[in-house]
Structure formats: structure tokens, C-alpha cells
Design a protein around this nucleic acid. Structure first.
Lengths: 316, 316
DNA sequence: GCCTCCTTTTTACATATGTTCTATATAGTT
DNA sequence: AACTATATAGAACATATGTAAAAAGGAGGC
């Protein structure tokens, strides 16, 4: 316990230092002691909670979530977007904006970027600013998905992003899912397709979305999966996918009949990309995100506050 | 005004620096920027009051005053803030800070918190740190007060405090003072209003300000009371109010014409709340505080040295 | 009164932080 | 598209702060 005299003196020093902006040297001179005494006094004042430092901003909540996510899942970065009572659509847009911002700040050294598909990534690309960044190439991470909603296809997003970056892009002239594994094999032997996929696996940065195939699933919306398919996936223990590659609760690839028909990079290849940025919004995707984290596919996560909270709660 | 991205980044840096004790060098490395950027960010955060340094100033004198106040008025706690030659505005801010600090250290078990209105409580809320405290609900203790100075209304303060605590808040969609007692009755019968007031009466902690209606009165400032009204109150022996509930020298409720028009919790209800924290600054309020203490409404008092001295002197 | 042990202060050094100036990038304008 | 104005980042330097070890002061024992 400190004496009153000492307490007074600590308060006085603290005030001079923190409120009046004096240097320790000046305070020492004024009080007629050596500087280290002031240095130690300030330490003591902090120890005894005479001085307390608060960080005061609305973003404190989400920044704390980010730190916990980074620590808990060994992420390189996590960006948590506050939901603050907004509708899912608005939150999704905010997440996309945050993703765009993050990408633009971390794109410096990248020469090759891969992009998957989906509505969230579409929003991200639309939010991306136009900036000259020569010598960059964008690769689609999987083929197209038929005629519907062309604007969210991997190829299309690669094209749009390349336009915004002033770079070039490759195309995967192939369906995301071939009609049979045999057809897939044949397509995969084609040089145009094979070469692009090979390169796609070596990008510096990959942008991926995550889905829950059972709830509000774009895959179902566009008619790629029907109820039968979903039932099959459920039986196999699938909880999510990234670019048509389905995985289970632990993030392990699930060998469904689809898997052999998909034209796109594999989960294994994805894991080997140095920087995989997952962009995801909507509470129903929490389980899928958790699984993908367990599978160690993702290095950077951009997500909304609600998923972030659920992820941490689920992994207590 | 700073953008969300920038505030987020400043908070992140400040957090690593002040809470986790990283050096600027380490932070710079982690974020992939040069060290001066971190140095400048921290300066910016200080300028924008994102980083706040609280010096817990107490002297033998104030601690003695606290002890005497606690004994003399049977208070659970008293916090006396030294004035040390500061201007009233600065003292008011210190009192608000001390109140915020006290609340944050005593909020642990609380599930429901009520808050009144006024400039002092507004400052308290603004000083309150952002800290996650799930499952807490904030209730306004009375309705709104017209269009002026919305930021000091009970509803608004409840909202702001809830935001800081990561909790939820209820609203009282009603004026603090209805145009007639008849209108008040009708409003009070509305479910939305009634239910909130019922719950407001059962909060674990209530935060209230105190006023002297005659001197530097916010009630007069915002045009809620005119000279006639004040004269009337004076005739009735009113010496102060808490949330539009006027009381006399002994703390007894005064049945003015206003009383039947107020939409807010009664003094009787306030007295039944386990922990009522009164936060008050400015010598002109001494008499009001004394009366409220006699009325036994308050359990914890946060006040400045000057009022504290006068309270003890008056009740020798 | 002198010595010893313990605490506190200071000196000198190591480290961390703040600042200036230059280089680079960005935005706005013709 | 080229230019200028403006902002921003980084390298190098200046200053401030933290810390270990030596010195000084002070209390208790003989």
C-alpha cells in the first residue's frame, strides 16, 4: 500500500506527464530528482492503477473480436465488420467493402491473384476502386456455372477485377462442373484449361467465398444443386464448400460424386496458396467457416460481427 | 471525421501498444509498415481522443470527505473528485469520468441499468469505455424533451451506453412531460410505454443527475421551464429535481402541476432501486443534493470536492 | 561510533520514440 | 494524357525513455 504522500506525488507527476505533456527530464528538474526516478514513478503509478489508459471508440468491440480470431485460429489477419442493427444486405455490402479495402492495401507485391465466385465476391469486386496496377494477372479458380447469373461467375469476376486493376486476366473456358467425370478428364487434358488451372494454383493471393449449401444457397438458387443432391451431401457430412469443393465438419474434403466432376482448384491446392482471403457474411455460414478454418485453408478472414461471435463461442 | 477503416486501424494499433505492451517496431512489422507510421498513428489516436488517459486523483482530503459522506448519509459509496483550481467545466468532466470509472468497476453483476438525462450524464456516457458486456439492457428513466439538445435525452443516453456495453436498450417513445395530465394518463396506458417504465423501475443500477432548477438550469435552457414556472416551483418549496420529479428541502416529492404530466419513474420507485448512483457537479447544486440525500433516494454519490464540503458543513 | 545490510538514487548505457526531410504516390486540373 | 498540387511513407537523425549496475544514503546491531 502506498502512503498518501507518495500517492500525491505520483498523481502530480502523472498529470505533468500525461496532461501537460512535459518530458520526464523537465519534471525531474522541477522536482529536483534524477530522471529515472520519474520514469519509475510513472511505472509505479500505472501498476497501482493511478494511471489507466482506455481505448475509446466504437470499433473496440470488433477489433477485440479480430484479435481473438487471429489468436485462436492462427490467422494472418481478421477483419470484423460491425452489424450495428443493419439488414443482412447492408452488412454483406459492408463486408465486401472491407474486403475490397483490405485487398487494395495488401496487393502491393502480388503478381497473380485468383478469385472464386459468388455474390459476396461480386460485391467486393464492384466495390474495388479503379487503380493502375500493371503487371498483375487475375485467374478464375473454377469454371463457369451455366447461363444464369453470369455476373457472379469466377471468370466474370476475374475479368472485372482485372479491369479495375488495369491488369490482365485468364479465362477458364470450362464448366465448373462437367456432366461426367469422364468429360472432366477430357477437358482437363486440354491445354487452355490445364494451364490456367496450373497457374491458378500458384497465385499470390486467392479470394474465396464460403457457402452453406443448405441455407440461402446460391448453388441451389441457380439450379446447380437440387433437393436430392443436398440430401446426398448431408448424408456425407458436408457442412460447406469453397468453389464447389465440399468439406465436412473438420474441414476434410468430402468425396461426393460431384468432386470428380468439378473443374477448379482443389482444397489441397488452395491450402498451399500463401494468402487465401475468405470473405463471408451471414450467420448461417458460421459452421462452414469454422470447418474451413479447421481445414487450414484460410489465412485472412473478412466477416461480420455475428459470425465472428459465433465462431469464438463455438470454439470455447 | 475519421473513416471506419482508419478508426479501426488506430484502435488496433493503440490496443497492441497500450494494452498488450508491444513496441512500435513490433506493431510496424506485423502490419507491414514503417515504424514512423505507427508513431504517427498513435499521435492521431490521442488527438482524436481514441486513447484516453485517466488519472485517478485522490487526496487524503477527498478520501476523508468520502468517508464522512458515507458515514453521515449512510451511503454505500461516495466518490469525491478534487477541484484543484480547475474551471467548472473541467471539474464536471472529471466528475463524469469518475462516474464512468465507478460504473465500469461496479457493473459486473448488473443485468439492467437505468439512466436519466442531463449534461453530466451525457459526459459520463461519452467517457464510458467500450467493453463487451453481453446480456445487459439499458432503460431510459423518463421520456424525451422536445427537439433541442437531443443528445442529452434519456433515450439517447440509454442508446449510447448500450452501444458501449455491447448490450441492448429500450426506448420510451413519449415526451418527458405531456401537455396535460389527461394526455399523460392516456400515454401511460399504452403498452410500449407502460412496459418500459415498469421495467425501468426494476433496474439493478440507476444513473441519475441532479438539478437546481433556479441556477444554470438545463431545464430552463432548453425552454422547458419559464420564469413563471420557476416562480411557481419556488412557492411550493422546490429545491431540486431528479428526472423532472421535484422535491423540497427534506426530499419529499412536491406535487406541482408538472408532476401529473411527467412520464418517467417516480421518486418512490427510484428509492426502491437497489443502487442509485447520483452524479453531480457544481456548487449551486449542493442544496438539491442535500435534499435528495434526506429523501434517501441515493446510494452512491459521485460529486466534486466543493459540494462535498458544503454538504458536510450544512449538516454539522 | 563504526560496520553491515538493505533500500534508494544516480550514472551510463541500451532501447524506443518522435521528427524532419526526401522520395514516392495520389488526386485534381487543364 | 501530362502536369502540378497535395498527401503519405520511409530513411536518417534527434530526443526521450527504460534499465542494469554502481554509488550513496540510512537503519539497525554490536
Amino acid at each position: 500500500m502506498l502512503s498518501w504522500e507518495e500517492r500525491r506525488s505520483l498523481v502530480k507527476i502523472a498529470n505533468l506527464y500525461y496532461n501537460d505533456g512535459w518530458t520526464q527530464e523537465q519534471i525531474a528538474k522541477k522536482l529536483g530528482v534524477s530522471r529515472p526516478v520519474i520514469s519509475k514513478s510513472l511505472q509505479k503509478a500505472r501498476e497501482h492503477k493511478i494511471i489507466e489508459i482506455f481505448i475509446k471508440d466504437e470499433t473496440v468491440h470488433t477489433v477485440n473480436l479480430e484479435k481473438k480470431l487471429e489468436e485462436h485460429f492462427g490467422l494472418e489477419d481478421a477483419i470484423v465488420v460491425p452489424i450495428s442493427g443493419q439488414t443482412p444486405d447492408v452488412v454483406k455490402l459492408s463486408v465486401a467493402q472491407a474486403g475490397a479495402y483490405y485487398l487494395s492495401k495488401n496487393i502491393k507485391k502480388a503478381k497473380k491473384i485468383g478469385i472464386s465466385w459468388g455474390t459476396t465476391l461480386e460485391a467486393l469486386v464492384q466495390e474495388y476502386p479503379y487503380e493502375m496496377k500493371k503487371n498483375i494477372t487475375i485467374f478464375p479458380l473454377e469454371g463457369g456455372l451455366g447461363r444464369k447469373k453470369v455476373e457472379i461467375h469466377s471468370n466474370q469476376l476475374a475479368y472485372e477485377l482485372a479491369k479495375r486493376l488495369g491488369g490482365t486476366c485468364s479465362y477458364l473456358y470450362a464448366p465448373a462442373m462437367a456432366e461426367s467425370s469422364e468429360l472432366r478428364e477430357r477437358l482437363m487434358k486440354m491445354d487452355d484449361i490445364n494451364a490456367v488451372l496450373q497457374e491458378a494454383a500458384t497465385v499470390d493471393i486467392a479470394l474465396v467465398g464460403l457457402s452453406n449449401p443448405y441455407v440461402q444457397s446460391t448453388l441451389e438458387d441457380i439450379g446447380y444443386l437440387n433437393q436430392n443432391d443436398l440430401e446426398q451431401l448431408r448424408q456425407l457430412g458436408v457442412v460447406g464448400d469453397m468453389g464447389f469443393r465440399f468439406f465436412d465438419l473438420n474441414g476434410n474434403p468430402v468425396n461426393s460424386s460431384f468432386n470428380k466432376k468439378v473443374i477448379g482448384i482443389s482444397l489441397e491446392q488452395l491450402r498451399n496458396i500463401k494468402k487465401v482471403i475468405g470473405v463471408v457474411s451471414g450467420a448461417h455460414k458460421a459452421e462452414s467457416v469454422l470447418a474451413s478454418l479447421k481445414g487450414n485453408y484460410i489465412n485472412v478472414l473478412v466477416l461480420d460481427e455475428q459470425i465472428a461471435t459465433e465462431l469464438l463461442y463455438a470454439s470455447e
